[in-house]
Amino acid sequence: MRWIAEVHVQLRPGIADPEGLTIAGGLRALGFASVSEVRSGKLLRVSFEADEVDQARGQVEAMCRRLLANPVMETATWEVRADDEPSEEARLA
């Protein structure tokens, strides 16, 4: 069956995040004076096939470890859910 993983990749706490700093500066310039910090990151939505939930979770864990996050400077948090929506290919068929 098909699954969707949502993977959030963020810089580790303490690692300088110039993009977040710049966005925070922009928000303050717009008048959001209370903004103290912005941390930037990536949201990756991965659609894939697996037989059951443990296999799906194992695959996502391996994807994060092998490619999606660099453990030297990043962390990945993720959740996985069954994909009930028809795929793009099925909709177009």
């Binding site: 300088a16 110039p18 993009e19 700093l21 710049t22 660099n70 400077m73």
Partner: peptide, 16 residues
């Protein structure tokens, strides 16, 4: 660095 042939990783310049 990404291949693990050198240690560490490169970060964006913090001075923008």
């Amino acid at each position: 660095c990404e291949a693990g042939m050198l240690p560490g990783a490169l970060l964006r310049n913090d001075h923008l």
